[in-house]
Amino acid sequence: MEHIELFFKSIFIDNMVFATFLGMCSYLAVSKKVSTAVGLGAAVIFVLAITVPLNWLLDQYILQEGALAWLGSEYADYDLSFLSFIMFIATIATMVQLVEIVVEKFSPSLYNSLGIFLPLIAVNCAILGGSLFMQSRQIETIGLAFNYGVSSGIGWFLAILAIAAIREKIRYSNVPAPLRGLGITFIITGLMAIGFMSFGGMLTGGSDASEKEDDTLQVQVIEDLERKEAKQQLAKNTTKVIK
């Protein structure tokens, strides 16, 4: 259940492109044709599925506060979390290089379709973002970390596929000249993000999401109450002034 929830949550609710704007640069640059978008999207899923669990291991056993306890009790109070950026990016860069070599050796056809995109991916913020959000959301097991990597990759894939299809069609429409190209892509992405916001209510049956909604509701109720009080006071004051 936990897995299913995380899966749908990372694809739709916390979609990398529409909710957190990760990987926007390649999203905008490589979305002119559906076929290239599919190639890049597949490569992103692939690399996220490898790097997120790997960085999870690094985070759990080296970087977190007290993570070095397995080395012996004298290392138990070390907190290396300030090194996480450099460790994560080093893992990503080497993994991408490694994956490139392995794929080239064992599956030349896959290499031909992914090949040019792999080096690009090392600097795609979606990949580093996946690891950093994995760290800040405190994902508990390596299975969940793998799940998180794959599902947020799929979310990214869906987003770039959709925008590439729309951009192929929009070529035949009469867009105002200054908006052509980049401008209209931004606005369409904004509209798509509004659409994706409607998925926000999808998991309200689960424990986590419903709690969050309750919180915001309560805040609203409190604000309403405050407003009512303020109004009443205002009314009192004005009646006083009139008197």
């Binding site: 529409f18 957190t20 980049l182 931004f186 904004g190 509209l191 993000a193 916001m197």
Partner: peptide, 16 residues
């Protein structure tokens, strides 16, 4: 989030 995209879109529009 979506309004950020639309605001940047409008800036691009004005600039061009």
């Amino acid at each position: 989030a979506p309004m950020a995209l639309i605001v940047v879109g409008i800036i691009i529009w004005v600039q061009r």
